[in-house]
Amino acid sequence: MSPSLLAERTAGRLNPRQEQAARAKGVSPGRTRAVAIARGVAGVVVLALVWELLPIVGVFDRYFIPPLHEVLQALADLATSGELARHLRASLVRSGSGFLLATAAAIPLGAAIAWYRPVREFVQPVLEVFRNTAALALLPVFTLILGIGEASKIAIITYACFFPILLSTIAGVATVDPQLLRSARVLGLSPAATFRKVVFPAAVPTIFTGIRISGAASILVLIAAEMVGAKAGLGFLIMYANFNFLIPKMYAAILVTSLLGLAVNYGLVGLERRFSRWRA
């Protein structure tokens, strides 16, 4: 058995200066990457087994929660018939374009707002109101104005993605280390060059916090919007399967949704890492 958090974190080890002098890193016994990954895989396997076995032994009603193999079978059918690709494509286009539109608008606008304090003070309360208005509460408004087609769905996803990115951009730009700004002034950099070479790169990690939140929001709002009114998409597929008592198919669609969420999150984390490799 591995030691508890308390024992592990307080165990004797080299301090950072000793590590530097020895050109080595301290290790805790029994802590290797392979073992850590193996434990993670084991966790997923246990979950799969629970899902597979509990309905079979009768703990759950097989009809409402089918065993995993039936769900996977349904998923395979969806994939081979081309149905999955159609719905996935519809969903990806909606959340992708909403997310990209929001990013493209929020970053420049956030930077401009943060650059001038009076502007920031002027818009901040308004932004707080908008940010704290749940995007889905506005779904009827968007449908009313833009109809039930693609436009309203993309618009609400854009709306949901917009505020986290906007607010994190404002925060990132407004809290740039004043020492870096001073050294830029000493070098006689123009405001534009200062923004491009100092302020924006310094704000990137903070902006990414907002981008990650938006990535999750884009999927969440997507599914909800598709459940309400759509002719394709993962949210539609879930509702459609549900209404027609195609229960394994419904679970298959839910599974795809969570895999999509995972993929978006890991994709954004990877992108973030690529842009902030310089961080300790």
Partner: peptide
């Protein structure tokens, strides 16, 4: 304070 750009 060290005013190096941490990303460079």
């Amino acid at each position: 304070q060290y005013t190096l750009l941490p990303w460079r």
